[in-house]
Amino acid sequence: MALTINNNMMAMNAARNLSHSYGALATSTQRLSSGLRINTAADDAAGLAIRELMRSDVATLNQGVRNANDAISMIQTADGALQVVDEKLIRMKELAEQAATGTYTSDQRLIIDSEYQAMASEITRIAMATDFNGIYLLNGNLSGANYDGAGINSVGKLKVHFGTGNSSAEDYYYVRIGNSTASALGVGMGAAAGTSGRSISTQEMAQKALDAIQTAIVSKDKIRANLGALQNRLENTISNLQIQAENLQSAESQISDVDVATEMTNFVRNQILTQSAVAMLSQANSLPKMAMQLISG
């Protein structure tokens, strides 16, 4: 290589190597400080796209878990209210049994019937008042077979959404809760005319009310059994969602997270190369001085 003044090729080569090593050092520093192998699309464009899709699925699945937990809380609220309704129906059957015997006068049966009607009114009050986050659970609003969510307020059965898409087979299912008012159960004066459980003011009506109350208890138990089955299903759904989210998070980590041991090795290598390139650039810049020695000599 000729000794020249205008073009110091050794310095240019050292500067190029320094720029490359310093850039690699900066990349290693960024990865180690962020903990991520992919910080920009330039690091791995395909990996970045896959990572972001996985991150969106993980976030959606975690929200799905929260949705399912909210649904469980709603079901527990409804079941707790139905437990109180159960107590009222048992008391009503006890009163009907009492009024069905012939050892009471008509006035006494009217007194017994007044408590009977009070229990029926309380059942209706509970059904009309039980709500979860403003959604009334036992008044029949959620008993419809059809669902319509096109409006501001959805109509019919309640949709619990927990999946990452919108497939009825995979991402959601419905919760239906039957009407639990006294009239719907067929007891108390609110029941339809001719219903056996309307009153126990006479011995004959009290005897017929026993069967009507038994039917009401069975109807209520069916609602509770359905709620229990839904709660168990939601708990299983939550377990599955958590496993999915965990596995997706693991896969995302394999793509996105930096291997600290490997990257630390790269960091040290790039650091040494950078320091070496700086030293050699300094030496290369001093080489043209040799030409001056020849000229002056």
Rank of each mutant, 00 (worst) to 15 (best):
L89N: 07
S106K: 13
N69Q: 11
A59Y: 07
L185Q: 01
R125F: 14
G194Y: 01
D171P: 11
I295V: 04
V278C: 09
Q254M: 05
S180K: 00
E87Y: 14
I272C: 11
A99H: 10
R109L: 12
H20R: 02
A78C: 05
N141C: 12
N270D: 03
K222M: 14
I295K: 01
I217C: 14
S183E: 13
A279P: 14
L142W: 06
S239T: 12
G149A: 11
K289R: 08
F132P: 06
S282K: 15
A46G: 14
T60W: 01
H161K: 04
A26T: 08
T29M: 02
S201D: 14
E252P: 08
N133R: 10
I38F: 14
S33Y: 14
G197M: 02
M205C: 02
K208W: 03
P288I: 13
A184Q: 09
I126K: 00
L185S: 07
Q207N: 13
D70A: 00
A118Y: 03
A99R: 03
V258Q: 03
S167M: 00
I123G: 07
F132D: 06
L36E: 06
A261V: 09
L273I: 11
E235F: 13
T202R: 09
G197N: 09
S28W: 00
K220A: 04
V278W: 13
N17S: 10
V187A: 04
A229P: 02
M128A: 01
M10T: 12
S19N: 12
